[in-house]
Amino acid sequence: MQQAVSANLTGSPQAVSVKLEGIVKKFGKVTAVEKVDLELPAGKLITLLGPSGCGKTTILRMVAGLERPTEGRILFGGEDVTRLPAYLRDITMMFQSYALFPHMNVYHNIAYGLEVTRRPKGEIRERVAEVMHQVGLSGLEERPVAALSGGQQQRVALARSLVMQPRVLLFDEPLSNLDAKLRKRVREEIRDLQQELGITSLYVTHDQEEAMAISDLVVLMNKGVIEQQGDPRTLYTRPISRFAADFIGRANFFEGQYHGGYVEVAGYRQPYQQQGISGKVTVMVRPEALRVYPSGDGLDGTMHLVSFLGSSTEFSLDTPVGRLEGVVAGDAPELPGRGERVKVQFAPQGMFLLPA
């Protein structure tokens, strides 16, 4: 993507914080969101992550003004906007579908919101030209949107949102219609632009890799409540529950005993330090933290399967605590083959203990 012309679109409003206080949303007898307190720092990108039906899209729609909370308040920069209609909130949203106008060219799709609000023609031309340069669409003004690739259409949708100079930018699973390679490229472009422009952004997705790649803060939702929130690294390395550990990345789980200084698993004692927990525990080990050796100290294991995937090699092995899955970078020809007996250890940086 081309370098932005400036740090902010000309005349763009200053980024504001967004705060949710005690938000509850009920649909009849069904509670979709239950007592959510959340603060989005000004100028940051916050992702609501979770499975279908967890309440993340409902929260997004309440921030947008498309749904009204049953209880609680929503504040933009300290201003209570709970009862303010969507068109007065100074927000824009990118939906799962691009929602472009097929009978209009690229220029008029981007300019549509400005034209509806009767901005001066000179201002419209200037703002559209600037945002088209920022998203790498310069020269395509007259192109019919139907003649664009999926990635280009996504950029038109993003440009149409940015040209309105919103205080808050909302994303409702905007990359779900793109293939894997294009999805990765577009998410990087969205992140670059968001950081350059400093627009407070709320992003909804069920894709944990997408959330970790673009977010300043990830808010993991589960059954209408916030399960855990934090920066991507914290959620991955220090989950507070089995749900969080299992949803963010892949993990092996098995039972053990923590005695302060080591974890005991099926007779093997693994050195490890973690505060605030003792006795019977659930051990979480990320696949990349599994270490296998032909002999020595470790948990007994038997290699089950080794699969070369190009950039990495995945393997599985049977142990007294069940089948464990591991991964190493590259070809890893040194891995033992199927049926070979090994000793298994766990790298402490890829372990975490949860209450049993």
Rank of each mutant, 00 (worst) to 15 (best):
Q345P: 05
K121C: 10
M284V: 15
K29N: 14
L137D: 05
Q14H: 11
V186E: 04
E123F: 01
S215M: 03
L170N: 00
L317D: 00
R155P: 04
V306S: 08
P51V: 08
K44A: 03
R341H: 14
E123A: 06
V168G: 01
G310Y: 10
K26T: 13
A329N: 15
Q134G: 13
M351W: 09
Q229M: 12
A266S: 13
L169M: 12
A289I: 14
V135N: 00
S17I: 01
A86G: 03
S149P: 10
L20I: 06
R286I: 07
E21Q: 11
L202R: 00
Q152F: 06
G261E: 12
F346S: 01
V263D: 06
D192L: 13
G339E: 10
P333G: 06
E188T: 15
S241I: 09
F247T: 02
L114M: 05
D179N: 11
P144I: 02
T58C: 04
F95L: 05
T282R: 12
L317T: 03
Y236W: 06
S6I: 02
L309T: 15
L48H: 09
E255M: 15
I248D: 00
S97G: 14
V204G: 01
K25Y: 08
L40I: 07
P120V: 01
A64L: 01
R323T: 15
R61N: 14
E67Y: 08
L40G: 01
L354C: 09
F76W: 02
S241G: 08
V5P: 08
Q195P: 04
V306I: 12
L40R: 02
R127Q: 10
G298K: 09
G136I: 00
M221F: 11
E334A: 15
E21H: 04
F27N: 09
R89K: 04
G72M: 01
V306H: 09
V265K: 12
D331M: 12
G276K: 10
V106Q: 09
I59D: 00
I190C: 01
L305T: 14
Y107C: 10
Y268W: 15
G11K: 01
G151K: 07
V265Y: 05
I46E: 09
D318L: 13
M93N: 05
V186N: 03
G150M: 06
K343A: 04
A111Y: 07
V81R: 02
V81W: 01
E340D: 07
R167D: 11
V292D: 06
V186I: 15
I23N: 00
R286K: 14
R323M: 05
P120H: 07
R183E: 02
M351P: 04
R269G: 10
I277W: 05
F76M: 02
L66A: 05
P239V: 08
K29T: 13
A129Y: 00
V63I: 15
V135R: 03
G122Y: 09
S316Y: 06
Q274D: 14
H206S: 11
R127V: 06
E173F: 06
D179G: 11
R89G: 04
R238F: 14
T31N: 04
V36N: 03
L202P: 00
G22V: 01
R183I: 11
G122Q: 13
A64R: 00
A213K: 03
E71M: 08
M62D: 04
E71Y: 09
